[in-house]
């Protein structure tokens, strides 16, 4: 595995096209998408629902193969990686921050992070220590023993971010991370994601309708009907 290199794109999509087939009919989800995201960058995907943002993420994370084009993560072409390698890649280097938080309800905040650490191959007593450190980084060390249903939406999102930080993920994929949050909580999460890029050197890909994110993004892509129709520099530049 190639380590994160500031000059090498963390995510590189070249001419990616994805067509889904249903009942014999083809539906284009992505058409000829090019995207390069680097360590330390927060890139924002803006676009209406159905514009292809989520499909782009599923392809970037290796869950779905493109119909055409190529995807490289951390310098590795995904089509050349087997399922086990992809699983390890996700466990060790990709963090997910979604609108629905993606936390296991039966686990506490700390246990949710423990689980990701275990999947990343970390063993022993250091796991809990790292989980608590990560919760500390996102500002909620006191909530380690709380279950998701005992946390506010903003706190849950912080746990999801802490989970990514615990494994020191090089890539954070955030799909509508502020959609379920109030104004203040949303702003705090945006700042947190921004700090992941600027302070921790992570590559953060965010899909959102939240226009406040424009001010924190390095690059803004506008998507429509499965195409990137525009790319501009964000307010962070």
């Amino acid at each position: 595995m190639i380590p994160a290199d500031p000059h090498r794109p963390t995510v590189l999509l070249r001419g990616v096209t994805k067509r889904f087939v249903s009942h014999g009919n083809e539906y284009p989800a992505l058409t000829d998408v090019d995207l390069a995201a680097y360590p330390g960058q927060l890139q924002l995907l803006l676009g209406p629902s159905g514009s292809g943002k989520t499909t782009l993420f599923t392809i970037a994370a290796g869950f779905v193969s493109p119909t055409a084009g190529s995807v490289a993560l951390f310098g590795n072409e995904l089509h050349g990686l087997g399922p086990r390698m992809l699983q390890r890649l996700r466990a060790m280097r990709i963090g997910f921050v979604f609108q629905t938080f993606l936390l296991i309800e039966a686990f506490t905040a700390a246990e949710n992070i423990d689980l990701q650490l275990r999947f990343a191959g970390i063993r022993g007593s250091g796991i809990r220590e790292r989980s608590l450190e990560a919760l500390d980084l996102v500002g909620i060390p006191q909530l380690a023993g709380k279950r998701p249903n005992e946390l506010s939406h903003g706190e849950r999102q912080r746990v999801a971010i802490a989970r990514s930080m615990a494994i020191d993920a090089d890539l954070l994929i955030a799909d509508e991370p502020t959609a379920s949050l109030g104004t203040e909580q949303g702003a705090a999460i945006i700042r947190l994601l921004h700090s992941c890029a600027t302070e921790h050197g992570k590559c953060v890909l965010v899909a959102s309708h939240d226009l406040r994110l424009r001010a924190f993004a390095d690059v803004i892509h506008t998507m429509e009907n499965g195409r990137i129709t525009g790319t501009e520099q964000g307010g962070a530049r």
Binding site: A61, F63, P83, R84, Q87, R88, L89, R90, A91, M92, I94, F96, L102, L103, I104, E105, A106, L115, Q116, F119, A120, R163
Partner: peptide
Amino acid sequence: RDFAIMTLIGSPTGY
């Protein structure tokens, strides 16, 4: 949903 989340965050199928 739990299983889907675990797969997403990198759980091996064996787990």
